[in-house]
Design a protein around this nucleic acid. Structure first.
Lengths: 148, 148
DNA sequence: CTAAAACCTCCAGTCATTGGAGCTTCAAGC
DNA sequence: GCTTGAAGCTCCAATGACTGGAGGTTTTAG
């Protein structure tokens, strides 16, 4: 088990992503280029597997690719300061909190729509009315929530 | 004030969106085509303003354009049964609940990263460590949440 | 050695916008 | 009525983060 050397399909399955996604990551320079066989097929080792796991995990957590790029660069400089990684995560947490707040308001609103809306004709229906008129919203939630 | 007749820029400001977005909605047939001046500039009235508000509001609430198209169609047939709008809203409520659950798990994890992580060198950094190793996650949250 | 599964590159499409080039029209002040 | 600058027009390309397909090559199991 000196070097595992798996083809792209195996790596993809292990990371739970599509083959194309891996090639895409290589293309944009997020994942270092794999070594190739004589017939120019990609072969990956443990380092790649770990790096891809890192990327996929961060993606699942909602980090953008530029953010992940930063995080990866930080992870590679093991002596440097942690504060920057913290800052990125904190910024991301804020955006997550904003999104939760927004969705929470939305849930309330949808529930309101559904409980109130028992006029069985559209003209009495709260779903349409609520969506048509912003002022009927419970709060001034749903502002902007763009992502890090 | 029989008909307000505003140009696209004014409508855009009133809806809190870009001019291009309005033209895009018209292009895909979500918003009915505006009447035009002799020099073929778009002029909008109250009906358009309301419809655009409806669309923007629904977008902020996370409805996809196809879902909004459905809702708009329902809103236009005011005599039809409310059950369909209810069904759409209910479906959406479920997806909102899923998303909230996911983001909630995510928030927990990010907070864990940040509070636990006070090694001040990267090699001890909790944020990086958590991202590198999925097993450090609190839960098996962060699955997929695609939208209606 | 053969067959089929897996790989390769390149290009196009997705969704919901956004941006820009290059031109025309509108409204206000003189 | 004329000028000027803001705002509008169309058309095309790009964004982010992939995904899908065509058409061809390589690997590997039997």
């Amino acid at each position: 088990m000196a070097d595992v050397s798996m083809p792209i399909g195996v790596l993809a399955r292990s990371a739970g992503c599509k083959i194309q996604t891996i090639r895409y990551y290589e293309g944009i320079g997020l994942l270092p280029a794999a070594r190739r066989t004589a017939g120019s097929q990609r072969r990956y080792g443990e380092t790649h597997r770990q790096k891809l796991a890192f990327i996929r995990h961060a993606r699942e957590l909602g980090f953008s690719l530029p953010a992940i790029r930063e995080l990866l660069a930080l992870a590679d400089q093991r002596e440097s300061d942690c504060a920057e990684a913290d800052r990125i995560a904190r910024r991301h947490l804020e955006s997550v909190n904003r999104r939760i707040a927004m969705l929470d308001g939305l849930r309330t609103e949808l529930e309101l729509m559904l409980t109130h809306g028992q006029g069985n004709r559209i003209r009495d229906c709260r779903v349409i009315a609520t969506l048509a008129d912003h002022r009927l919203c419970s709060q001034s939630h749903h502002a902007e929530a763009t992502d890090s």
